[in-house]
Amino acid sequence: MTPTALHGPFIDRLLSGRGIWPAVPAIIVLAIVAVIPFMVLLSLGFSDVVSSRGVIISQEFSLRHLKAALSDSLYWTTFRRSIGLAVTTTLLCMLLGFPVAYLYLIGGKWTRRIILVLTIAPILTSGIVRTYAWIVILGGRGVINTTLMQLGLIDQPVRIINTHWAVLIGMVQIHLPIMILPLIAVMTRHDTRLDEASANLGATRLGTLRHVILPLATPGLGTGAALVFTLSYTTFVVPQLLGGGNYLNAATMVFEQVVYALEWNKGAVTAVILMATCLIGLIGIAALTNLATRWTRAGRS
């Protein structure tokens, strides 16, 4: 098994070095397919382009599209709605997700296995499929309406789908696993001897939860919140399918501007605003996590 010319000294030097250059191919590809496109997006959103037959004649920096967007009340309502929805979704996911992580912590082998399966399986399933399930459940002739009618509680189907509530329910259910997974990661590393020590020192289980488990799980809550916020803020499957045709969130707005209206400058500005606000949200979540970590650790009952 003597080294051939193909993997001779060159590849050996590559593999034994401590440089980052095995990553060079990936760095180049990312530059072409992520960095440059992002700069193009910025330049489209913040410039005036005069072009003729696809040839750019002149291009200069301009805030025209941004100003137009900020003076449009549709932008404000859409972004306010999107942010509100994302924040509510994140909070509800935290509320529903943390107990699952606690159950994982105190559960035996099979409880843990079931929780893992029920958490990972949805992540591997298409978001459209999972949203479709809610059409089946919440639809005019869906599970809830038919059941209620059969029970004689209502005569006419109630309108659930195509409302804000339907969107919220779908959002929470779709993003819940993303919240649970990082929490489980924290719980896997959690040293249960700490809980035993806490109980031995006289703490109730709630006390241990509050003073030992929660402080140690706060970073996991922060990670989960960041992921859920990003995804729920920028999704358009759920609003599109459960909100009805005219339920507009920021992501659907980008889509409509770019694909239907072909207003690329407008679309670029919306995408940039979406990303900027998302980043601000993430910074906010990081700051809150920091604060919460300090608060839960310093706190006394």
Partner: peptide, 26 residues
């Protein structure tokens, strides 16, 4: 203590059901 832990576990079971039931229905 029991009440509190009970509520937490009830929420956990609800969440897990919420994760799986829609797919079961489909």
């Amino acid at each position: 203590d029991r009440l509190g832990i009970g509520v937490i576990i009830a929420i956990a079971v609800f969440s897990l059901a919420l994760l799986v039931l829609p797919s079961v229905v489909v």
